[in-house]
C-alpha cells in the first residue's frame, strides 16, 4: 500500500488545513485519503501509465471533541464507511494522518495498536450479521474483555457483562446470558451490539448506520440509548447515517460527504436549517416530509452520483450543481470557514 503514496499528487493538500479545535479533542485527521487501486488486466497496465483508483476518501480533515456526537451524512458511495474504518485503522489510509488523543496512530502496526483498541469500538449496520450466530450473548459481549485480557476472573467477566447489559436495558441480564442472537428481536440485538461496544469504556465509537435496518417504531429507542451511553461514558461517537433528518436530531455536528470529500461541516442546526453548499441544499430538499400539506412540487436536482474512479474535475458536484460556473470545472474549492464554525467547500463562497 505504501508504494501507492508516491504516485499521488500531494500539491493540492496545503489549502485544506483542519479547523483548529483546541486541546479537548479525541481525534483529529488531516488530509486523509483512502484510494483503492482498481484491478485491471495485464495489457491495460502495460499501456497506461495512469494508476486507476477508487477515490473513496479524498483529503478529509476534521477533529472530534470529547463527548461529541458527530454525524457523517451523504449518498451511497460517498465514502462514509471507508472513512469510519480508516479512523479506527481497520483499513489503512493511503495518505494523511490520524491523531488519537494527540498521538499519531497513522503508521502504528496492528500490534502497537492493540492497547489502543480498547479505547475505540465500532457498531455495524446489520445486527444480524455483526453478532456471531453461534455465540451466546454472554460471550459476544465479553469478547472485548477477553481479547484485551482485562478481567481478572471468570466471575468478574460475568459481573461486567451483566452490568453493561443492564445499562442497555437488556434486563434481567441473567435471562439473556445464554441465549443466541436469533432468539432476540432486531432491537435487542442492536442493544447487545451497543453493550459490547461500551463494555471496555471506550472514548471513541464509530456507529455505521446502526438503526437503518430496524423498524421505524423501535429506531428511536436504540438511537436514544446510544446517545445516553455516549454521554454517560463521556465518549465521542461518529454516527454514520444517510438520513439527514435523523442526523439533525441527534448530532452536535454534521459533515456532509460527496464522492470522498467533505462538502460542508457545521453544527447540525446550521447544516440542516441553513445549508450553504448547493449539494446539502439539494439533499435536504429531497428528504420527504411527513406532512401532506407541504409543498409537493419541489425542485429535485437531476442525475445520480458519478463514479468515484474518475470524479469530475474541479468541484466534484459541479455536474449536478444548478450554480456551476466555469471556475468549478477547473479549480477544486477548498473547505473554508464561510461563517463562524460553518465550513463549506464551494466557489460561491470563495
Amino acid at each position: 500500500m505504501d508504494s501507492k503514496i508516491s504516485t499521488i499528487d500531494q500539491n493540492d493538500t496545503s489549502s485544506e488545513l483542519p479547523p483548529q479545535m483546541g486541546a479537548d479533542e479525541v481525534l483529529r485527521v488531516e488530509n486523509l485519503r483512502k484510494w483503492y487501486p482498481l484491478r485491471r488486466g495485464f495489457v491495460e497496465t502495460l499501456f497506461s501509465k495512469n494508476e486507476m483508483n477508487v477515490k473513496a476518501v479524498d483529503l478529509v480533515s476534521f477533529s472530534l471533541k470529547r463527548g461529541e456526537i458527530f454525524a457523517l451524512a451523504g449518498e451511497s458511495g460517498s465514502g462514509k464507511t471507508t472513512l469510519g474504518k480508516v479512523l479506527l485503522r481497520l483499513v489503512d489510509p493511503t495518505s494523511g494522518s490520524i491523531f488519537f488523543h494527540g498521538k499519531d496512530i497513522t503508521k502504528l502496526t496492528q500490534r502497537e495498536l492493540k492497547p489502543l483498541r480498547r479505547e475505540m469500538q465500532i457498531i455495524f449496520q446489520d445486527p444480524f450479521e455483526s453478532l456471531n450466530p453461534r455465540m451466546i450473548i454472554k460471550e459476544i459481549v465479553a469478547e472485548p474483555l477477553r481479547v484485551q485480557k482485562v478481567a481478572k476472573s471468570e466471575a468478574e467477566v460475568e459481573e461486567r457483562v451483566k452490568q453493561v447489559l443492564t445499562e442497555v436495558e437488556i434486563v434481567p441480564p441473567e435471562e439473556f446470558l445464554y441465549r443466541f442472537p436469533h432468539e432476540l428481536s432486531g432491537g435487542q440485538r442492536q442493544r447487545v451490539a451497543v453493550a459490547r461496544a461500551f463494555i471496555l469504556n471506550p472514548s471513541f465509537v464509530v456507529a455505521d448506520e446502526p438503526v437503518s435496518m430496524l423498524d421505524v417504531s423501535i429506531r428511536a429507542e436504540v438511537v436514544n440509548l446510544m446517545i445516553d451511553m455516549v454521554k454517560k461514558h463521556s465518549a465521542s461517537i461518529i454516527f454514520i447515517s444517510h438520513d439527514l433528518a435523523l442526523a439533525k436530531h441527534i448530532a452536535d455536528r454534521v459533515a456532509v460527504m460527496y464522492l470522498g470529500k467533505v462538502m460542508e461541516l457545521s453544527t447540525s442546526e446550521k447544516v440542516v436549517d441553513g445549508p450553504l453548499h448547493p449539494y446539502t441544499q439539494a439533499l435536504i430538499a429531497a428528504v420527504p416530509v411527513p406532512d401532506p400539506e407541504s409543498k409537493r412540487t419541489k425542485d429535485v436536482i437531476s442525475g445520480e452520483i458519478p463514479s468515484p474512479v474518475d470524479p469530475p474535475s474541479g468541484c466534484r458536484f459541479r455536474t449536478r450543481c444548478p450554480y456551476a460556473h466555469e471556475r468549478c470545472s477547473t479549480e477544486e474549492p477548498p473547505l473554508i470557514e464561510a461563517e463562524k464554525d460553518h465550513f463549506v467547500a464551494c466557489h460561491l463562497y470563495t
Binding site: 435523523l246 428528504v287 406532512d291
Partner: peptide, 23 residues
C-alpha cells in the same frame, strides 16, 4: 406513535420517541 417516531427534517431538534416493544 409511528408519526412521532419519524424525525422530521423541519422544526426544532427534539429527542425522538419510539413505540415500546416490537411487532
Amino acid at each position: 406513535g409511528l408519526i412521532k417516531a419519524f424525525p422530521s427534517i423541519k422544526g426544532e431538534k427534539v429527542r425522538l420517541t419510539s413505540i415500546p416493544g416490537s411487532p
